[in-house]
Design a protein around this nucleic acid. Structure first.
Lengths: 205, 205, 205, 205
DNA sequence: ACGGGCGGGACGACCCGTTTTT
DNA sequence: AAAAACGGGTCGTCCCGCCCGT
């Protein structure tokens, strides 16, 4: 799914804090592969070449690591999104076709997002509210693009923007799962491009 | 997503082993809500009103409970599917529009499926192979229906059956997640019906 | 110091729960010897011949063990106190002279009490309120006995009951510490008896 | 937090190592409040406004901090004692009546002493020997004063100096505990003065 | 057959005091 | 003065046997 949340404070050190970066990268990978609960601090530490205590020196708690991993991924996605959707309206929508390629380049974080969306399903999960907001944000963003398209006369007036937005997001959410279960054989980028061609056909007069 | 795996032996013992059923029901709910790793035997036992040992008398291991929960859910879905898709071809596809209603009536098992699809993402996960097969089966099933429709002249010949099948499954996989994150407010059944109307429009000459 | 608190629920099982009793006994000893924080669950378990988990099966938390140890000790002391002080008035006070002997027979629990009185000193300690109440109760009890003695004409009227109570308790609290630091050589029972002889001299007309 | 107590640093080394003093003051307070084991280096550091490593720059080990805290407290006590007891004999004993006031002005160190006396109870504790010596020293000191008084003819000859010394020390040890548990409401200085009046009554012919 | 008391081995997160490096 | 890393623990949880009542 698309990312659209939280401004993200950004590490102030600027340059070298490599160990912290390594930890976050390893965590992202493992969280995606084994789930949050299935990933132990020790496992993360091992991957970076530290001991548990070494990791806990940088992040004093496991949730801190989770948050950092999320933040980093969102930050990355946000940047890509902004330049992708800058034109607005139909043009922006047609550019979303590149989304498949983005996922293919970022499998670890994509996996983490899927896992999080599953772990947040229960209304009492600590991630539920967070994910709810994320979905709402993305939904609104797409609705906005469609309305903009209608205003510009690029998109037909009769379109149900809400339903279309849900449909697009659902397709993207669903297809990336199939990509993983196809052993990453499914031509994700092509499929998504095809989807958007068809979508634009339906949206334009 | 749709279920289509494992024939399932079907509980033969006529006796009304209610306790076993209760355990499986509770397990299904909790697995969906808290994930497999996040659900303890004790929690299941508590929900049924037993002690850990009480549960372990019926299922000697946790994985046995997981398997039973899966089996029961698949069994249920299978029955519903079979009568739903019996006609084959376009008729069967248009009947899939009811799928939304099915999900709405079975939220616990639906949640469990989402969780499982996330937990199986990693290629080394114990659920990966299982899920891969499930996705492949469903994909084939839909492809089959489309081909059947083409053969019967109900569906246009130029259609890319593989891509269409993926798209349908992706939409269904994705929209149910949004349903959960909308606080179950999203009109799932309507949305799915709408999707299939449009799909059939596109498939028919 | 003397014990006078909490009614104590009393184990309902009645007979055999020996393991629980053993755990509490071992805990009392170790808490006294090494302090609360200095005593690990593993150490208690080792002493009883169990593993950590074995102990945690009976008491699911360390504080539960502490509470049980306290309760048991207080229960024991309460019984001894009640028959000791039954007569009331001067007679009861003179019987308190036996207290030294009681301590000598119960060094583990005595030590635990000293340790607790130290760990509860800080107003924010979890034991502070508990200990405050205990001291207040004992103080009142002794004041009561003195007043009773005055009423019965056994004790001189001019006595400052509050101060005398504090003094008695202080002496008992203090002398037992010296007993421990004398390597238990100090003739505690004799010293206490001597103290009370002198006290009674001062109290009686 | 800054220390607003400490009557006089009296550090012999000319250099104004204030940080070291602050650390020792903070440590004294925390050791008293939370016990030795309950006080972490980090907590001390936090109180002084340093990091753990900052503290460890000045004292390379935790026991070094403990020793420094003890030493500082003893140093202070010693000075006060020496001028207090200089006259010797009965006069010295009657001056001990001021002890209550001293405690009231030094609650942190008093608390630390109580805690230490509890933590040293076990014969295997690292503080046991230290405390044993302390108690023996004080005991001898008081016995000495009494003997001196007898020699000078100020004190009756029949007195059991050993027992009297124990009793005095016990009272002082015990009453300060009650002072803490009374929320520091108990009029400690008055009570102690009253005790010594009575004691002197008993000792003099 | 069913249910539970009791016990344990493995591991979870997190903490603590310390050494090494900057 | 502090940042980085670590070895050794601490409490507590989890899954699962063993054995004893009904």
């Amino acid at each position: 799914m698309l990312a659209a949340n939280s401004p993200a404070p950004a590490r102030q050190g600027g340059a070298s804090s490599t160990t912290v970066d390594n930890i976050v990268a390893a965590a992202t990978e493992l969280f995606g592969a084994r789930g949050l609960r299935g990933t132990t601090i020790a496992a993360i530490a091992h991957q970076v070449g530290l001991t548990d205590a070494g990791v806990l020196h940088h992040f004093s708690t496991k949730s801190a690591i989770i948050e950092a991993a999320l933040e980093r991924g969102l930050q990355q996605e946000l940047e890509q999104m902004q330049e992708m959707l800058a034109p607005g309206g139909l043009e922006a929508i047609s550019r979303m076709a590149q989304w498949g390629a983005v996922v293919e380049q970022n499998p670890e974080f994509t996996q983490l997002q899927i896992v999080l969306s599953a772990e947040g399903l229960g209304a009492d999960s600590p991630f539920h509210a967070y994910q709810s907001r994320r979905y709402a944000n993305v939904h609104n963003l797409v609705v906005e693009l469609i309305r903009e398209g209608v205003d510009r006369g690029e998109i037909r007036a009769g379109i149900d923007a809400d339903w279309e937005a849900s449909a697009v997001i659902a397709y993207l959410d669903g297809i990336r799962i199939q990509w993983f279960y196809s052993g990453r054989q499914l031509p994700l980028a092509d499929a998504v491009r095809h989807y958007f061609e068809q979508l634009i056909d339906r949206l334009t007069p």
